[in-house]
Nucleic acid binder design. Structure first.
Lengths: 228, 228
DNA sequence: ACCTGAACACCGTTCAAGT
DNA sequence: ACCTGAACACCGTTCAAGT
């Protein structure tokens, strides 16, 4: 039946493969990797697959679902199996790896914040983190709450920081903020004026490490509420 | 000179007011309030102001700057001056109020995550929070780090939770997640399978309260790193 | 059932031309 | 300097018509 579609005489292109969800997601991942998530549009993706945008809707409900699928594919790079150090060091390594993946493609971090995540790779990372938290002495519900907090922090910091990293005016935006702090009138913003540049001091990684410790120490010191 | 533009004979409309940044932002806020941020487009805004989209670019660099201005206007509703209870209760009230504003318009929470915030209303809220943290015994740098973490948590939870609140398929998405947890194979996700529905147990407000306490307790228990 | 072209209903931003 | 209409270069999604 495919004889009419790919006649022997015309073989400049490799035979057009049949559409499938996997093929669509794979092409979407490739575009995201080479051009960024912003360039991943239904039309651009369709062109890549040598078809029309409308055809994709047989396999994908909408672009949001596509974004979620691309995100989950990226999360397969997260290294969940670190064996160095105690549970705390291993958990830190897991979250560092998660953050590193989202830093590659900060638009994906924003997807992660908005979409309720449920892909297999995400669940895999969450499962590993839960195990380490329970190993560290947290109750089951405590671990459930802490894992949420830890991933939220990692995701949000990637969305926040990563966005600015590659932007042309990243430095300018930072300078603006520093200038605004320097110029903050002490009558209106007494504490900002007093604390001054200490507000933006420290390296990103130093601040991240502090956040991680704060959540862990806090979770260990704070009793879980009643679940229901 | 305006005689030709608004002749006496034609006064069905009130005299078209001159464009200004304040007028533009005010109209943008009005549209956001009545129709949501998603409906706030340059073209829609221009129509409201009885002009063309191109005219707006004299006063606003791009739509991102407009979003930031609208966000800051919304933040004027944040109540920073609670006087009930100790510093901890007052700080909790401040953040609850901040979160409530973003819940009204969750798309704004997403703006807040991506834009480096520097509007006067945001700084006002940050300043008040810094004061309470220092009152609570944190060092200046500790307060600087903690305030970031507290606002990040509040913003992210508004972006995450708020988005789902008003969506038509909010319940469906939640049910999907619960179903996925119930169905999680114990070989692949041992901890998720064991913890089960405890993962999504508790009320949003109970979980939020826990997060707040975790950050505060953690910040009080974790020494600040060297600033530089 | 799957695929398509065309259409619908939009976007943000730029720019030459006017005043 | 400010304002405009028109154009540029796109979007996501739907739908009737084909196979």
């Amino acid at each position: 039946m495919s004889a009419r579609r790919t006649p022997v005489s015309r073989r400049e292109r490799p035979a057009k493969p049949a559409l499938s969800r996997e093929g669509i997601v794979a092409a979407a991942v490739a575009i995201t990797r080479s051009e960024g998530l912003d360039r991943l549009t239904m039309r651009r993706l369709a062109k890549e697959l040598d078809t029309g945008a409308a055809s994709l809707y047989v396999y994908v409900a909408d672009i949001e679902e596509l974004h979620a699928a691309v995100l989950d594919d990226f999360l397969s790079e997260v290294e969940i199996g670190s064996t160095e150090g105690d549970w705390r060091e291993r958990l830190r390594a897991l979250l560092d790896s998660y953050r590193a993946v989202l830093f590659e493609q900060p638009s994906l971090a924003r997807v992660a914040l908005v979409t309720r995540m449920s892909g297999p790779r995400y669940l895999r990372a969450v499962d590993a983190a839960l195990g380490l938290l329970v190993e560290g002495g947290l109750s089951e519900y405590g671990a459930a709450l802490a894992v949420d907090q830890l991933f939220l922090q990692a995701t949000a910091s990637a969305a926040e920081h990563g966005t600015r990293a590659r932007m042309p005016d990243a430095d300018r935006q930072h300078e603006d903020l520093v200038a605004e702090i320097d110029a903050a009138p002490a009558e209106e913003y007494p504490h900002i004026a007093r604390i001054g540049r200490l507000l933006v001091a420290g390296t990103p990684s130093g601040r991240t490490k502090w956040s991680f410790d704060v959540i862990l120490n806090g979770a260990l010191a704070t009793p879980s509420p009643e679940p229901e």
